[in-house]
Write a protein that binds this DNA or RNA. Structure first.
Length: 429
RNA sequence: CGGGGAGUAGCUCAGCCUGGUAGAGCAUGGCGUUUGGGACGCCAGGGCCGCAAGUUCGAAUCUUGUCUCCCCGACCA
């Protein structure tokens, strides 16, 4: 993509409504624009990141055996009356009426819809287990939206739902998702700590929240210092994790059994990026989601639900990866892998080297943002650092005369001078 | 939902107290000089001063109402 034609309105100054780093940077980097409190338009750069995160989530869900479908954003109030949540949910639910005055709502979650879908189409235990998921926009009419996309009213969420014949099966589904979540977050350059958590409005007795540690996190969390060591090693050891203490402040009871001694207990702030629940037959019983068991008896299915805040993750990743100059994208979610900077657009030699590199990068399958604008060097450097692509290739008249370009690593700041061909080879690795 | 703050140019903000022709910097367009880390000079365009009532000869400025946005708390995937 050529920067000169890319819709990327970056800002030198910080809009006054933004308080935390990720919100400031998402506005400055031209990723999103607010349209109403907690409701955002995603501009091309932001959308590219959102799509990359979505893709990782999708790949890990598929790998775990979950199947993707897509349920609507607008739901009928009827099924929510069946589960009893139409009245229980409160003002967070955005209620609307259609032209026939039927009561509708903009879905805040999808337990009712998926349960209806399941009960209408699955009748036998032989069709179990199933894990179904979708990635869809939700709306929760938060009293106080804040922190940009981290706590928006409209947000993109991946939600999975598991259906099993018995508790043993449900527990297995839960563990499958648990592991998938750890892999998912790790691929995005995040260390997520699974915490014992309050189950909130969804209800149930087995639940974990996945938190990323960040000073600006909304939740207070407590965890065993051993997590810091595990995070450093980058391994996923389910059994080790299961043994270690970690809890949100809602569940944390100082001095209770299992709580580590003070010197091994860490207190921090966390951003909740995922939440998984086992809730048994809560919805299947209320909504009559029953299959016929091996002996012909009716069995209310055992269910669980598993959410990942996809749009929230964009903000969370920035909270975890930025510096004073701007964003530092992990390669796995970066909107482009390489930023190619032509320091002297219009100069025949510089243009020739850049055009050639740009074409070869494209041919190598490397998504590149080529800053071909006729502007000052400082503007391009600052802009490129702000949007945080993992690699920058700087092409200037002095270097071109000497047959070299500069390759800069955004995360480390390390720069090396080398030939255009070598740079290309390095990037293609 | 309780408490607080703010709405003036695309962005950041001044002007309001003490009513009298709408301002600055950045951004945008033109010209010139510049050119390896957000340049400089000159010129130009751009405003329902959130909206509505009221007070007044006259309101960005004072009064009332209303809408919106932000912050703290409570709540919450």
């Amino acid at each position: 993509m050529r920067r000169s034609s890319f819709f990327l309105p970056t800002l030198k100054e910080t809009p006054s409504e933004a308080q935390i780093a990720s919100h400031r940077l998402m506005l400055r980097a031209g990723m999103v624009r607010q349209s109403a409190a907690g409701i955002y338009s995603w501009l091309p750069l932001g959308l590219k990141v959102l799509r990359r995160i979505e893709r990782i989530v999708r790949e890990e869900q598929d790998a775990a055996g979950a199947q993707e479908l897509l349920m609507p954003t607008i739901q009928s109030a009827d099924i929510w009356r069946e589960s009893g949540r139409y009245d229980a949910y409160g003002k967070e639910m955005l209620r609307i009426r259609d032209r026939h005055d039927r009561e509708m709502l903009f879905g805040p979650t999808n337990e009712e819809l998926i349960t209806q879908l399941f009960r209408d189409n699955v009748k036998s235990y032989r069709d179990l287990p199933k894990i179904l998921y979708h990635i869809q926009w939700k709306f929760r009419d938060e009293v106080r939206p804040r922190f940009g996309v981290m706590r928006g009213r409209e947000f993109l969420m991946k939600d999975s739902y598991s259906f099993d014949l018995d508790f043993e099966g449900a527990k297995k589904s839960y563990e499958t998702m648990f592991t998938a979540y750890l892999k998912t977050f790790k691929r995005m350059g995040l260390t997520a700590i699974p915490m014992r958590a309050d189950s909130g409005a969804i209800g149930g007795n087995l639940t974990h929240e996945f938190h990323i540690l960040a000073e600006t996190g909304e939740s207070g969390v407590f965890y065993d210092v051993a997590y810091d060591e595990l995070a450093a090693k980058g391994e996923i050891d389910l059994e080790a994790l299961d043994r270690l203490y970690a809890a949100t402040d809602e569940k944390h009871v100082p001095g209770a059994p299992g709580v580590p001694p003070a010197e091994r207990l860490r207190e921090a702030r966390g951003i909740e990026v995922g939440h998984i629940f086992y809730f048994g037959t809560k919805y299947s019983k209320a909504m009559n989601a029953v299959v016929q068991g091996p002996n012909g008896e009716p069995v209310a299915v055992e269910m669980g639900s598993y959410g990942i805040g996809v749009s929230r993750l964009v903000g969370a990743i920035i909270e975890a990866h930025h510096d004073e100059r701007g964003i530092i994208w992990p390669a796995s979610v970066a909107p482009f892998q390489v930023g190619l900077i032509n320091l002297k657009s219009g100069d025949a030699a510089c243009d020739a080297v850049c055009d050639d590199l740009y074409a070869k990068l494209a041919k190598a399958g490397i998504d590149t943002l080529y800053d071909d604008r006729d502007d000052r060097a400082g503007v391009k450097f600052a802009d490129m650092d702000l949007i945080g692509l993992p690699w920058q290739v700087v092409v200037g008249p002095k270097g071109v005369a000497a047959g070299i370009v500069e390759l800069k690593n955004r995360a480390t700041g390390e720069r090396v001078e080398l030939s255009a061909e070598s740079a290309l080879a390095r990037l293609a690795e």
